[in-house]
Design a protein around this nucleic acid. Structure first.
Lengths: 245, 245
DNA sequence: TCCTCTGTGCGTACAGTGTTCGCATCGAGG
DNA sequence: CCTCGATGCGAACACTGTACGCACAGAGGA
């Protein structure tokens, strides 16, 4: 479709027949590239993103992107930091630190589930290089936990957010699997139920402990919300014991 | 090296000059393939594993592997399950459930750090398909938590192991970065320290809360052990509150 | 008006990937 | 001895990320 402009096979190359540079179309820029990459990642998953496809969506050649981004890995880091801006952390010093931390944890989770590739990249890059948005996220967390009175705020943060990251990673992977099936979560669960029960047939405690009853399978998203909230309360209870009083 | 046998350029192809099938060498089998894949993953990291390289290490062509393994993804699932057998879970019903859970959690962590690609694959596949070793790991956990007296063992397990997975993922990513640098962890930390301090310059609480002091950088592995143990105690304290008494 | 310089787009090419297909060969069973 | 199913594998396909060098646009100076 419509190669951009110059090297066209038009019979008489002329300044007049030549298309203008499309200044109305958002120019190829680092920001535009990152934005479009995020859109692609959200819509089609992490393994569907290739430099060629991304270039095509921006009406550009694949290699043009390298003028604005050193490498695909760097692009992924930029995408992660862009998305980190969506995480909301309440201001420090409020009256209820538990509510504030719950809000921050929940915001991280919903962001991670909105962009299921996030946790994958985090697990790969390991926060080696920190973008400004991620830094300020960490800073606001540190402020929050310090104001709450924790003597070792970084340890408390690590405890809470290791839990949050672990749960979000598992949930994101699950949602990705569901999305690939093309069904809704409820449909997928319903179809999976017999197989799951059969798989845990020989395992007494698994079968007894598992929440795989068709009654509870009605609203899987609610179930996940509850599970997340439960574990978070556990961690916060444990932390509260360490708050000097 | 030494292509296996038949289509050789030896002058006179003959049954006698032809190499015997190396029956002493472990034949190409599903188990041998999985074992060698794990060795490669451990030694060179997840992105260094390709079917061609793996075939070469087994003195086989790349496509031969597909006789024993449907796809590379399936091979990764097999590798994950193989490694899951290394996780130790104490028998249920012991006198000290906290010690038992601590043991299981620590065993998961050391396994994840011994095979830093584990958490990556877990985050990708999302435990969609469960191998026998992973199943029996889950079963033993369920037995442990049920015997400990938790009314909702699966929720307790999720709480603890979300934390364990989250922390292990972060640590594994960090260790991978360190390994790529070719330095020891201490050297890497020492070299990174000024950059880290400069990065958190404008962030008051981060700078105050960060453990980036050269004194503590002496033994980073010990620091990580402590951090993991601290968070685990937090979670277990929170869980203990929920134990009917 | 021309001439240079810098920044940008991109066609081509390279080395590598996972996987399919069909052929060659093997060991075992009738 | 002959057949048959299982196994190994070379060639090929459709991709991938990225290096390189050319073509061109616009800006600034002469």
């Amino acid at each position: 479709m419509s190669r951009s402009r110059t090297t066209d096979k038009s019979p008489i190359p002329s300044v007049w027949t030549r298309e203008q540079r499309r200044t109305d179309q958002p120019a190829l820029s680092r920001d535009a590239i990152v934005r479009e990459a995020i859109a692609m990642l959200d819509a089609e998953g992490i393994e569907a993103l290739s430099m060629r496809k991304l270039g095509a969506r921006l009406n550009a050649g694949a290699t043009s992107l390298y003028r604005h981004v050193a490498t695909k890995d760097e692009l992924m880091e930029l995408a992660v930091d862009e998305v980190a801006a969506e995480i909301h952390v309440p201001p420090a010093g409020g009256p209820d630190w538990r509510a504030a931390v719950t809000e921050a944890a929940g915001s991280f989770r919903t962001t991670a589930l909105r962009h299921p590739w996030l946790t994958l990249v985090l697990g790969q890059a390991g926060l080696a290089y920190l973008g400004p948005n991620y830094m300020s996220f960490s800073e606001r967390l540190a402020a929050l936990f310090t104001a709450a009175g924790f003597p070792e705020p970084s340890r408390a943060i690590d405890a809470v957010f290791s839990y949050v990251i672990g749960m979000s990673t598992t949930e994101a992977a699950w949602l990705t699997t569901v999305a690939r099936s093309g069904e809704t979560e409820s449909e997928f669960v319903a179809r999976l139920l017999p197989a799951a029960q059969q798989a845990s047939a020989g395992y007494d405690h698994l079968a007894a402990a598992g929440p795989e009853t068709s009654a509870q399978a009605a609203d899987p998203a609610q179930l996940r919300d509850d599970k997340f909230a439960y574990g978070l309360e556990v961690v916060l209870d444990g932390l509260a014991l360490r708050l000097p009083k």
